[in-house]
Structure formats: structure tokens, C-alpha cells
Design a protein around this nucleic acid. Structure first.
Lengths: 217, 217, 217, 217
DNA sequence: AATGAATGAGTGTTCATTCAT
DNA sequence: CATGAATGAACACTCATTCAT
């Protein structure tokens, strides 16, 4: 009767309209936050009936859950592929950082919401899915770094779980203070800003992590 | 009629009740976000009349502005003091990181809100005050690092504006994913979590920044 | 296109699914009232598509009409049979009461809804069918009592239309305050409650009516 | 902050607007049921803002609770006064019936809602208040009948708790089928209908109860 | 003959803010 | 100076019903 009644949401069926809603939701959530975005807003921008959101996703909360799954599946895949590649440790870490920055940059909206909203409220359900993703990501990072340690390239006294915060945190903080850095670095267009991320910022993060992993204190 | 009509808010007068409101607002904003916190919530927790917020601060929006000014003045002062101190470059950077982590940790609520809310909406007014703070901070960082470069301790090809994102970003990302790291690192109490920040996380950031500043690629 | 378009509803055709819907509707209407029951509820409990109710009965309102006809036909028949029986006046009245109490008790759900909902709103259509039933019932009662009066057993100054309110009203009031009387009379199970109705309450009503009909004031 | 926060509701303060809301609510609840009446309806008829109902009473549910208390307090008082009066048993019972019929007739709206809604849903809170009223009433009836039994006027094999259902039930059933009896008894105006209740129906109930209490079977 | 998809209208409630006092 | 009362707008969500298939 209702299109969505599967609680696992793993095999969610996404038709065009659902995707349209999800895309709009991501945009608006990232612009105005979860609470700041009303179902009315979403329905207006997606040009669908206001009842469709509840109809398709059950509730605003469940829309967020669906959005998480919809947007995080790709990153997971890319990381798994990276693990299989045959690269030098430093190269592998550099590529890991690229994947993170690109992946998050593409979905910057959802990740911003995720980090803020999920930790802020008791969105347990949504959080579980996200926590699983983070665990998976951490495992990938762990494996890559351990490989480098085994090859004697990386230092052995690294606290691996703190690597991700540095990678993502640096990117996030930069992105969160977008207009500040736009002015500071004279990045006049959206394109220039994104380009700066893909070149200078990515390189900065790669340098930082390499220095941390390689050089003795 | 209304006590506050000065838009600059620079010379805001803070009586006990205002401070009480600000403290409660910080707590609730950080817990539930700006949109997620209602004036009713604030007035209830602060045990004041619901009309007081609008009466004292003009609007919910202006309450946020006031909160920013109220909470960011201390950090600014500490950084200026640090500049005067006579320390080795690495030591100075380490202390800078300590100041950041401690300062933000103390006011974690407001900073989280700031970063999320301010970039998310068009809260221009509030943003200006915050941008000024960031510019000031950046200047302090710039000076410290330049000093180190002049002394030949730090590399010269550093993009200084990207240092702060790494320092603050790492801390933020860790803090934003509090419950994830609590579980991962087996930090059972609030105290253990905060203690981990003050020791291991701070040390990690210090190591990271030192490696970045000191070692050649 | 739609199977039902006859407004009289006298020759409504009831297939299995329709009956299933009617039974579920009775249950839910009696539990939660007409307004309090949604078509979604009905369709869920009857395990049919949500559109089926409108499809089969035209509207929620017309479903109620159909329910009335479906549930009131039996009582009418029983009363007509009673008229033919050869019994002493008092015995006949007692049996009349038994028929009423049993008949209504069986369909307690629908009768409760009927009495409340029909008088409450302008459900004209549904009401006409119910009014006809009541008129028929009154005629039966009239005949029985007149017979008793002719035989000199019953008083002649009886206002016959007020007999039914006493019979049904007593039963109804008892049933409507079910939980109150369950506690008061220590009727722990559904069975005990129903049994009390069939014995003590029925006897009480019979005594009452007999006293009214037989004894001079 | 909120005008109503006392959960006991015993000392509810009723200003003019609250009373206005309660009166309108009673009218509409009785006409269209609890579920069938929207807060918008109430606010429109009472010519107040839609938010006032929630503001004054907290919720629609709590409005019903308040309505019960507001409307049932008078009946309770009258019954207690009756107990003190020095009357013959039969006279006392007759007066009891008068009080019931008049009291309920005046507040017919609320009583109809009470009987239907309260037993229909899980309105526990509201129900408790109503159950207490019923218990009190029963006690009054008990005392009056016991007095009559002690004076040797009333039979001793009466099931007292079943007296009230007969009194109130008869009245209720008559009132619930208002339009049926209006047509049947040719009661063309509201006044005629009410007059019939106050004379013929009341007398019928008095006769019935007297017959039940006095004459041996 | 039957139903999944879709919808506009409506629900109770909460919101930030205003204003008379 | 401070606040209780009040409000219109907006909220997420559910409703009965329609309609293309």
C-alpha cells in the first residue's frame, strides 16, 4: 500500500520522483539545515505535492535516513576498490585523501548535514547507518596505513583513528568557512573555489598526512 | 522602550539575566541547533519569561549575534598574549594549538553552532563579527609561523591559511563524532573523553602541524 | 466502472471481500468511532487495498450505510417471528426484551455507532434506513403490548413509544459504561460481563418493564 | 508562562474566553463528536484565534477534560443537597430522577460525548474524572434507596447499580433518537420536545422506577 | 475488476513575535 | 521595566478520495 515499508532501507527502490526529492532535500538540508528545511520547502522546490514526502519516505526523519544511504554508498565502494590497487603506501594514502575530498566535495551538502545533525539530536536510526559507514571507512584507512607500516615506510606510533579527523576535518573546516576563504584567497567564482580544493587544499592535506606518517619527531 | 536598539552590538550591556539567557542559549543551541531550539525552551531553562528574549535581544537571530560576541572575546585575548611570549617556534605553535583546543573545547557549544549555522544561512550580521574574529586569529597564526620561518625552523613553502583548518578541523571532526569515538576508543565518561582531547588529540594535532612545518617533502 | 451506484442500497450485493470489510468496519467503528476510524485502518485490518473501500462502497459514508443494512436485518426478522408466537403477554414481553438484548449485544458495535453517529451528524441517507427499522420495531412492540392490554393483563395508560427507550436505553447505558460496571460488579472477564448481561441485566429489565406494565400506581 | 499547567485541573481558572471556548466546544462536540470537531471549528465559532485552544488548555484532549469538570460539578452538588432533604422515599426518588433528567438535559451535549467518547477511546485521564462522578452518583442513589428499604417502602431484592442505567439510559435513548421521536410524537419545536421530556418522559421514568422499587413480582 | 500512485484539503500543534498594561 | 496574553503563520503529518492503468 505504502511504497516504503522496509525498515532496513537497504533495498530501497528509487524512482525518478524519489531521487528528485532526495536531491532537493540534500540541497536544502545543506543550505538551511534539517530543522530549517520544511517539507513545504522541499515539495515546492521539487515541484511535487507536499504529501509526497511523507507518502514516499514515511516522515521527514526517514527522508534523512534514505538520503544518507543514497549518498554514502558510492564513497564506500571507491574505498574498497582502492584497497585492491597495487600502489606505494604514500601514493595510496594520497589517493585515499583524493577520494575523500572529491567524494565529500561532491556530496558536500549531505556530509555537512550528517556531521551536524546526527550528533546534535537523537536521530538514532539515521545515525546507525552513518556510524556503520564510518566504521567501514576507518577499516579501509587502517588497512592502508598498516600496509605502509609493514613496508617500513610509515611510523609505527600513529594513532590511526585520528588520521581521518585530520583529513576530513581540514577539508570540512575549509568548506564550512567557504566565504571567509573565498575572500581571503581571492577565489572569485564557485569554480575557482572548487578548483582550489582539488589542487592546493588536497595537496596541503596530502603533505600534512605524509609528514605525520613519515617523519620522526 | 526596548533596551537594545544598537545594531553594532559592540557596547552591549550584559546584566545577570542576559548572561543567564546567553548561557542557556549556548547550551541548547549546541545540543539541538539553532532552529531546533525554541525560545520557549530557552525561557523555560533560564526560568525567565518567554517574552524576555525578544525584549532583551530583539529577536532570536540577534540573540545569536550577542552570543557570538559574548563567547569569542576571550580566545582573541589569549592569542594576543601568546604573541608577546618569548618561546621557541615549535613551542609557540604547540601552545597555539593548546589554546585553540582548550578555548574551543570550553565553548564547544557555540563554536559548533557558529560553524554550522553561520555558513548555512544568510546570517550576515552575525557572520561579520565571526569573520573579524577569524581574521584576527589568522593574523596571530601568520605572525607566529613567520617568526619560525625567519628563525629558519619552519619551511617557507607553507600555505599559512590552511594551518588553522587543520588544527581546528581535526579537533572539530573529532568532537562532532563524539559518540563514534567514545565507542571506538572506549572513553566511557565525559571526563575520559575530555581528557583524551586534552592529551592524545592535542598531541596528535601538535605532531601533525610540527611535521608539516618542519620536515621537507 | 464502479460496481455500486444504486443509491437505495436495498439490493446490495455482498461478496466475501465486502463482508470482510463490513466486519472490520464494525469492529473499528465500535472501538474508535466513525471519525476516529480511517479508511487506512480498515484496509490494513481487512488486508485489502486502501482504494477498495471507496471502490466497493463509494465512500466512507456509504460504507456506514451498507453496514447498517447488513447488521439490522436479522433483528427485524426475529421480532416478526415473535409476533406469530402464542405466548402469555408477560412472557411475550420478556422474550421481546431477550431478543433486543441479545440482538443488540451481538451487534453491540454497530448499534453504538448508530445511536451516536447517526444523530450526531446529518447522515440523512443512513438515518432513513435506521428510522425505518425503528418504526418497524415500534410497531412490533405496540402490537405485543396492545395484545396484553386487550387480555386485561397490562395497564392501559402506558405510553408505548417510551417502552423501547427503557429497554434499550438501560442495556445501552450499562454497556456504554462497561469498564465502570466491570470494576463495580467485579466482572473480571469479557465472558463474565456478557454473562451478567444475559442473566442479571436482562432479568432487571424484564422486572422493570413488567412492573411498569402490570402494577397500578 | 502558560495559563494552564495544573494537572489536577481541580482549581482551573476560567476566564470569560475559556468559558466561551468550553461552551462552543460542548455544542460542537455534541453535534459532531470529538473527532468530528476540529480545533479550527471551535476557534471559528468562538471567534478566537486557532492557537488559543492549545494555549489555554494545552491540547484538544485536555480541553475535553476541562469540559467534563466544568459541566459535571453542578449535578454532583444537587445530588448531595437532595440527600439532606426530608422527603418520603418515593418522593425522593422522583426528585432524584428530576435532577438527573434536568441536569443531563441542560448539559445534554457533554453527556452524550462523555458516554460515547470516553468508553470508545483510551481517554484515561478524562475518564477518571468521569468515573469518580459516576461513583459519587451511585453512592447517592444507594443511600436514597437504602433509606426507602429501611422504611419498608422499597423492595429489598433490588440491584441498585442497575437503577441508574434505567433512569439515565431511558432518557438518553429518547434524546439520542430525538428526530425519530419528534416525528413520532409530533413535537414540532425544540420547546415542545424539551417540554415533553420534562413532563411525560420524566413521569414515565418515575413510574417505571417506582413500579420496580415498590411492587412485588 | 482491481489497485498503486498520487493529491488537495485538512488535522493538532508549536513557532517567534507583538503589545497592552 | 518587565511580562502575561495573545496571535498569525508555519509546522509535520494524515485524511478520504480520484484516476490511469
Amino acid at each position: 500500500m505504502y511504497p516504503i515499508r522496509n525498515t532496513t532501507m537497504s533495498n530501497i527502490e528509487l524512482n525518478d520522483k524519489k531521487i528528485q526529492i532526495l536531491e532537493v532535500a540534500e540541497k536544502l538540508f545543506s543550505e538551511k539545515g534539517f530543522e530549517g528545511t520544511s517539507i513545504r520547502d522541499i515539495s515546492k522546490h521539487a515541484k511535487i505535492n507536499i504529501a509526497m514526502v511523507s507518502y514516499y519516505f514515511g516522515s521527514k526523519e526517514r527522508l534523512l535516513e534514505a538520503l544518507i544511504l543514497y549518498k554514502t554508498s558510492d564513497l564506500k565502494l571507491q574505498l574498497e576498490n582502492l584497497l585492491q590497487e597495487n600502489l606505494e603506501p604514500v601514493e595510496k594514502v594520497n589517493k585515499l585523501i583524493e577520494i575523500y575530498v572529491n567524494g565529500i566535495c561532491l556530496n558536500k551538502g549531505i556530509y555537512r548535514v550528517l556531521h551536524f545533525e546526527l550528533n546534535t539530536k537523537k536521530r538514532e536510526k539515521s545515525m546507525i547507518a552513518f556510524t556503520e559507514l564510518k566504521k567501514g571507512n576507518l577499516k579501509s584507512v587502517e588497512r592502508i596505513i598498516t600496509q605502509g607500516q609493514e613496508k617500513g615506510v610509515f611510523r609505527k606510533d600513529i594513532i590511526i583513528p585520528l588520521i581521518t579527523p585530520t583529513i576530513i576535518g581540514t577539508f570540512f573546516h575549509f568548506h564550512m568557512n567557504k566565504s571567509f576563504f573565498e575572500e581571503l584567497l581571492d577565489l572569485k567564482t564557485e569554480e575557482m573555489f572548487n578548483n582550489y580544493i582539488k589542487t592546493s587544499l588536497t595537496k596541503h592535506i596530502q603533505q600534512t598526512i605524509k609528514a605525520l606518517l613519515v617523519y620522526e619527531n
